[in-house]
């Protein structure tokens, strides 16, 4: 049987090697090294801070946040879960993982939000961005771990960079979606009253897209957590390292302990950010509104 490979073969892998090793790394390594400085700065400070704060205080803060935005059940779960992590001796690793996740999400938001806004405003830009986001989401993360190591070296920061690449697409996508789904007649009204593009963005588009944007943030957070173990392969610490070490030593207990830590952290963070998204923009009737409505109902019949 004849196949296209009999006619010609393409040395695709060699081309990529030549591109990355021969051109990208020698020419741009200093640039990439410089680019990771802010990431390192944020990560180290956050990590140091979280390790410095006593476990009890952190747990209480998280439990209160859970109570405020996600309800009493999650608050109790937070107390028990965090205590459990502490008792199995993984509190410092958990805090490192939290610092890594928070740093990734922060940078994802800082990069993803403007990109999403841009994508919503320009169909051309969205046409270009969309396939790139598709690639970022579908390409196995192991594929870009090696070039990342070549460009950034090993350690925590390259792990964060890999996490950002993996976790940023939902942020861009949902910001774009949120802004695009603001009702056309509202943006038309804003234009008809002579608002500038910036005024429209701040007064109308971002507030109305906020719920969708926060859903994107939640997705980004979950993806970042799921990258924790993989990032540990290139030298990032935290719970991922615990899992990897357990894996290497066939230490089922150690790996499971690390895994349970990640799951508990994931549930707490997910519920809090979800609650944040819903509570932020969903209109709930407050006691004050109910009272004023009742008083008005008695005083003057609503004019229809």
């Amino acid at each position: 049987m004849i196949s296209p490979a009999d006619i010609a073969t393409i040395p695709f892998d060699d081309w990529i090697n030549a591109f990355v090793r021969g051109w990208l790394v020698p020419n741009f390594r200093p640039l990439f090294q410089a680019a990771q400085v802010p990431v390192t700065l944020v990560l180290n400070n956050l990590n140091a801070f979280l390790l410095f704060v006593p476990m009890i205080l952190t747990t209480v803060v998280f439990a209160l946040a859970a109570w405020r935005w996600a309800g009493r059940g999650i608050a109790i779960f937070t107390l028990i879960g965090f205590s459990f992590i502490d008792m199995i001796g993984l509190w410092p690793e958990t805090m490192t993982t939290l610092a890594m996740v928070a740093t990734s999400v922060l940078f994802c938001a800082m990069i993803g939000l403007p990109l999403g806004i841009l994508a919503a405003r320009s169909d051309m830009f969205w046409k270009i961005t969309r396939p790139i986001l598709d690639i970022m989401q579908t390409i196995p993360s192991f594929v870009y771990l090696v070039p990342i190591v070549m460009l950034f070296g090993v350690g925590m920061t390259p792990g964060i960079i890999a996490t950002i690449i993996f976790a940023i697409p939902p942020m861009v996508r949902l910001t774009n979606l949120g802004i695009r789904s603001v009702r056309v007649d509202l943006t038309e009204a804003a234009r008809a009253f002579g608002s500038t593009e910036w005024q429209m963005l701040w007064d109308l588009q971002i507030p109305l897209a906020l719920r969708t944007i926060l859903a994107g943030l939640n997705q980004t957070l979950m993806l970042a957590l799921s990258m924790v173990v993989i990032a540990a392969l290139i030298g990032a610490g935290g719970l991922g390292l615990t899992v990897n070490t357990g894996l290497g030593r066939l230490d089922v207990g150690g790996a499971t302990a690390g895994g349970v830590g990640i799951v508990i952290l994931a549930i707490v963070l997910d519920r809090i950010t979800q609650g944040l998204g819903e509570g932020g923009t969903v209109r709930t009737v407050s006691l004050r509104q109910v009272l004023t409505r009742m008083l008005r109902g008695k005083g003057a019949a609503p004019i229809n």
Binding site: D185, L186, E188, A189, R191, F193, G194, D203, L204
Partner: peptide, 19 residues
């Protein structure tokens, strides 16, 4: 055009278009 819309002409919409 923005100045004209701010000072001279305003509009009322079919589906209200309130924020």
């Amino acid at each position: 055009l923005r100045q004209i819309r701010r000072n001279t002409i305003t509009m009322v919409f079919q589906h209200f278009a309130l924020f």
